[in-house]
Design a protein around this nucleic acid. Structure first.
Lengths: 353, 353
DNA sequence: ATGAAAGCGCTAACAT
DNA sequence: ATGTTAGCGCTTTCAT
C-alpha cells in the first residue's frame, strides 16, 4: 500500500490521522492509492499501537428469545399461514428495556467517536465472553446482575466498569441508576395528596431487590408527608411477576377493598388489573392502580397503566458518558449518576378523579 | 505478567488458548498470576497476531430517536408528572424492526464465538464510521440503503460484506432477504381463493422500491392463479406511509367499495383502517384489509391487522451465518439467502368470513 | 515534509 | 513441556 504511492508507511499514517502534516501532492497520491487498492486501515493494529481501542462494551443480560408456538393453519406454497387471532401477546417488554438502553449507548458512543461492542451474558460461556469483550474495549458498561461481582472486579482492574440500574458505589464501581425513591414518592403523593386517597395497599417486590427497597422507601416517605399511618396500609410481597401479583390481589380485593393499590413495578400492577377485572371492580372508579417502570405493555393495557417511567435510553447514554469520564480521570472515588424519572398519569390512576 | 509466574509469555498464551498443552502445575501457577494481577488479554494484539479479529460488524440505519413532546403537569420534588392519557402512541415499529435484527445477529454471533460491533450510519460521519468498523471486523452486515454502493464496494475488497433485506446479487454482494413474492402471493391467495373475494383494491408503495416490486409481483401471481383479471383491480401508489395511505383510501372507499384492500406494507394498511373507520365501514365485515411486515403496531390496532410477518431476528442470524460462510470460502459467486415469511391471519382479514 | 525504527501485546513456528 | 523469536499493521519519536 505505502509503496503504491511511493511513500513510507509513516506517511500513510499521517495522511489518515493528521492530513495537514502532509504536502498536498503527497496526500493526493496516497488517497488515490487508498482508493485504488481498497485499503482499510486495521483498527486492531491502531488500537495496539495507540494503547486505546476507541471501543466501549455493553453487557446485557441474556437475550434468549423463546419463540412462541402457534399452530399451522395451512402451508401454502412454502409459506406458513397461521391463525393469529387469539395469539397471546408476548411479554416483550423486558427486551424492549434493553433495546432502548442499547440504542442510547450506541448513539452516545458514536457521537463521541467510539465504537460499541455488545454482548449478552449468556449462560455458561459468560466468563469467556466477558473477558473477550473486556480485552477489546476501553471501558465496559454492565447491566445489573448480568455478571457476578468477582468477575466484574477482575475486569475493573484493567478498564473502567460502570454498572447500570444499580447503585454500586458501595462495591467500588461507578454506576448509573434511576431515582426510584423520588419517583415512587412523587407518584404516591399524587395518589394520597392530590387525589386524597387514604385507603391504600402496597404490592412490593422480592425483599432482597435493591430497586424494591428504594421504591418502598419512597412510598413510606409519601405516607409520612401526608400523615397517613404506615400501619393503615396493607403490604404484600410479590415477586415482580404478573401472575403472583394477580393471586395476591385476588385476596387484597376480596373484601374491604382499598381505594388505591400502589405496586412496586408494572408487571405487578398488570396482575392487579387482572384481578380487579376478574372481581368486577372498575379501575379507576372503584380502585386506582399504579405501577413502576414504564414498560410498553402498560401503554396497551386497559385501562392504560399509570406508572413511573424510567429513561432507558438515557441510561445507555449516561453509561457511555460515565465511561468516558472515568477514562479521563482514572483515579478518584466511584461516582453514582442518578437519572430522573417521570410520572406518567394514565387511565388507571388519572390526574383527577 | 508472565514473569510473575516464572514462565515465558508463550506459556501464558498457551494456558489461555491450549490449556492441555501445559503441565498442570505450570498452568495453575499462571492462572493464579492471572487472577492476582487482574490480567485480561488484549483482544487487539491477539487479532493482530492471529490475522482475524473474531468480530463481526452490523451497520444499521440511523437510530435517531425523536423524543416526543408531552406537557408538564407539575414538577413535584424534581420529578416530572405528565398527563399521558391522550398520548399518541409512537410509531416505534421501525425501530423494533432493527432491534430484532440486532438481537438475532447478537445471538448468532456469540453462539459462534464471535463478538458483535454495532454502528448506526448516521449522517455526515457515516464514511468514517463505516471505515472504522470495517477496519475492526472480519465481516460486515449492512442493512439495505444504509451505506452507498461505492463505499460498500471499497470495504468489500477487504472483508466480506452481506447486505440485508435487499437482494444484491446483481451488485456482487452476498445478501439475505425475505421472500416477499411468495408471502404476498400466499396472502392474496387466501383473500381470493379461500375467502372467495374478487372485488379487490391494491395499495402499492413507491414505484422504485424493490420490496414493493416483489410484493406486487406476488399479488399479480395470485390474481392469475385464480383467474381474476388484473384490470379489475384498482391500484393506487402510496409512499409506504400511514398518512398518505389514509388519503388514498378515503377515495378508494368512497364509492364502489372493494371487498378487500390489499396493502404493500403494514403502515399503509393501518392508514386504510383509519379511513375505513372514518367512513363508518366495518372491518372485516364490509371490507377486509391486509398488510405486510408484521410490525408491532398491527398487533395492537383494532381490528388487529392480518399481515405477512418477516422474520427479523432470523435476518440478523442469517447475516452472521452468511459472513461466516464467506469467510470460509472467500471466492465464488455471490449468494442470496431467501428467508421464508409467515402469513398471520388476524381480525382485519380472518381465516374465514 | 518525509523516512527509519522501535515498539504495542500477542500467536505461531521453531528450538530445546 | 517450555522458551525464543519473528512478525501482525499500525503510531510515534527521532532523524534528515
Amino acid at each position: 500500500m505505502a509503496s503504491a504511492a511511493n511513500v513510507s508507511i509513516a506517511t500513510v499514517s499521517r495522511v489518515l490521522r493528521t492530513p495537514d502534516a502532509v504536502r498536498e501532492g503527497t496526500r493526493d497520491r496516497v488517497q488515490a492509492a487508498i482508493r485504488s487498492l481498497g485499503y482499510v486501515p486495521s483498527g486492531n493494529a491502531r488500537a495496539l499501537a495507540g494503547k486505546r481501542t476507541g471501543v466501549v462494551g455493553l453487557l446485557l443480560p441474556g437475550f434468549d428469545v423463546v419463540p412462541d408456538e402457534r399452530p399451522d393453519l395451512v402451508t401454502d406454497g412454502g409459506v406458513r399461514v397461521v391463525d393469529d387471532r387469539r395469539h397471546v401477546t408476548q411479554p416483550f417488554s423486558s427486551n424492549l428495556y434493553f433495546d432502548e438502553v442499547l440504542r442510547g449507548a450506541e448513539t452516545e458512543a458514536w457521537q463521541r467517536g467510539l465504537a460499541l461492542m455488545v454482548a449478552a451474558g449468556r449462560g455458561s460461556s459468560r466468563d469467556v465472553i466477558v473477558n473477550d469483550v473486556a480485552g477489546r474495549v476501553d471501558g465496559l458498561a454492565v447491566l445489573a446482575q448480568t455478571v457476578p461481582d468477582d468477575l466484574l472486579e477482575h475486569v475493573a482492574r484493567r478498564i473502567p466498569v460502570v454498572v447500570l440500574a444499580d447503585d454500586r458505589r458501595s462495591h467500588g464501581f461507578d454506576s448509573v441508576s434511576v431515582d426510584n425513591t423520588a419517583g415512587m414518592r412523587t407518584l404516591a403523593s399524587h395518589v394520597i395528596g392530590r387525589l386524597g386517597i387514604r385507603s391504600l395497599a402496597y404490592v412490593a417486590g422480592p425483599i432482597d431487590s435493591p430497586d424494591d427497597m428504594e421504591r418502598s422507601t419512597g412510598f413510606r416517605s409519601a405516607l409520612a408527608d401526608h400523615g397517613v399511618p404506615a400501619s393503615s396500609v396493607r403490604v404484600v410481597h410479590g415477586d415482580f411477576g404478573r401472575a403472583r401479583a394477580r393471586e395476591l390481589a385476588e385476596t387484597l380485593l376480596a373484601a374491604d377493598v382499598p381505594r388505591a393499590v400502589v405496586c412496586s413495578n408494572d408487571q405487578s400492577a398488570l396482575g392487579v388489573l387482572d384481578a380487579a377485572a376478574a372481581r368486577g371492580l372498575r379501575v379507576p372508579e372503584d380502585v386506582v392502580v399504579t405501577g413502576f417502570d414504564g414498560i410498553d405493555a402498560g401503554r396497551f393495557s386497559s385501562p392504560r397503566l399509570t406508572t413511573v417511567h424510567q429513561p432507558m435510553g438515557e441510561l445507555g447514554r449516561a453509561a457511555v458518558r460515565a465511561i468516558v469520564d472515568r477514562l479521563d480521570r482514572r483515579e478518584g472515588p466511584p461516582r453514582a449518576v442518578r437519572l430522573p424519572v417521570e410520572v406518567l398519569l394514565r387511565e388507571s390512576c388519572p390526574p383527577a378523579l
